[in-house]
């Protein structure tokens, strides 16, 4: 573990986060959007683990547990919203779900 420099782990986490963020912005399928959000959370977890290893502190690993729990809860809520959206709009395309705008404009 000590062989891996902390900067490598952080670059990896940053790349992972950027991929996740890009996914949220460009994907239209809401399932993939949710997955991209998971990727961003994982990226944050990796950064925490790397920091924990660097400073020899267990706090980072404790935070990882928190993040996993949060992610699980988020996925539960997100998937149930997804089901309702699919039920209402007969679609999982995020662009179809755009009622929150001024009438008549696109």
């Amino acid at each position: 573990m000590n062989n891996v420099p902390v900067i490598h782990a952080l670059i990896f986490a940053g790349a992972l986060f950027a991929i996740g963020a890009l996914g949220v912005i460009v994907r239209r399928n809401l399932v993939f959007v949710l997955m991209s959000i998971e990727l961003m959370l994982i990226a944050a977890s990796v950064a925490f683990i790397a920091a924990a290893a660097k400073w020899n502190q267990a706090d980072g690993q404790v935070f990882y547990i928190f993040i996993v729990v949060t992610a699980a809860a988020e996925v539960a809520v997100g998937l149930s919203l997804l089901l309702r959206i699919h039920h209402t709009f007969k679609s999982v395309d995020s662009d179809d779900v755009s009622l929150l705008r001024e009438e008549g404009e696109r």
């Binding site: 949220v24 912005i25 460009v26 995020s94 755009s98 929150l100 705008r101 001024e102 696109r106």
Partner: peptide, 9 residues
């Protein structure tokens, strides 16, 4: 205010 979640994100 486009109403698209992607743009807000």
């Amino acid at each position: 205010q486009t109403g698209r979640v992607r743009n807000y994100a």
